[in-house]
Amino acid sequence: MAMARPAGGRSMRNAVELVLALTARDLKLRYQGSVLGWAWSLARPLALGAVLAFALGRVLGTGITAEFLLAGLFPWFWFQGAVQGASGSFIGNGGLLKKVRFPRAVLPLSTVLGATLQFLLSLPVLIGFVVASGHGPGPAWLGLPLVFALQLGLTAGLGLFVASVTVYFRDLEHITEVLLTLLFYGTPIIYAAELVPEGYRWLTYVNPLAPIMEGWRGILLDGELPPASHLGASAVLTAAALAVGWAVFRRLEDGFADAI
């Protein structure tokens, strides 16, 4: 097999610094010149939460509450922003990929990290809503890092996958957009998983995002962790997403510079 790897490899430190620098630059550029800055990342979940709380809760009278919606919408927008952003991260940096040799995975990973930082920065606001609505912190909150890690792993795996395949199959960027919309309604975000009719319940078992969303809500609002079987299934699916995403990326990365 042909090899063209210059000797004197890179340090892990370099890769970490590179991801952090790219992330910082992206975030800085996104809010450069805007008055409200990162507060804009709150706008979408808050606005959608308010509208849905009114439409579903008041108009349709389902009794759904704002904190229920927000506990799903905040993590959802993290997931959606990261995957959608990652899908264009290679094709959007074609010049760089063609001219400079660097660990290419840093591009989608820094996009995912950027969305993650935005989510973490918005988390106090979500927690503020949850606490204000009378759900104080409890021991179950110690499970939050677990749900966070599951979602981060799933997002990184999917991000690597769509970013890599989009280089060869540009339509995937648009397909991703459509699929994310479908996934939004197909995942128990604006409804509880228990409300799904028995015949369709399997959908929430094959959807790796479903137990994660249930996890955020269960911990924040009900003070209990989701069943271990759900978390276990989610962990397996997350590990699979990471493995497949990484394998696909490794398989395809050598052709990026020529395909873009």
């Binding site: 042909a2 090899m3 063209a4 040799r101």
Partner: peptide, 11 residues
């Protein structure tokens, strides 16, 4: 430069 891989041969 390693920006592209040879179809055949080694660098």
């Amino acid at each position: 430069a390693g920006l592209s891989k040879p179809t055949r041969g080694t660098v």
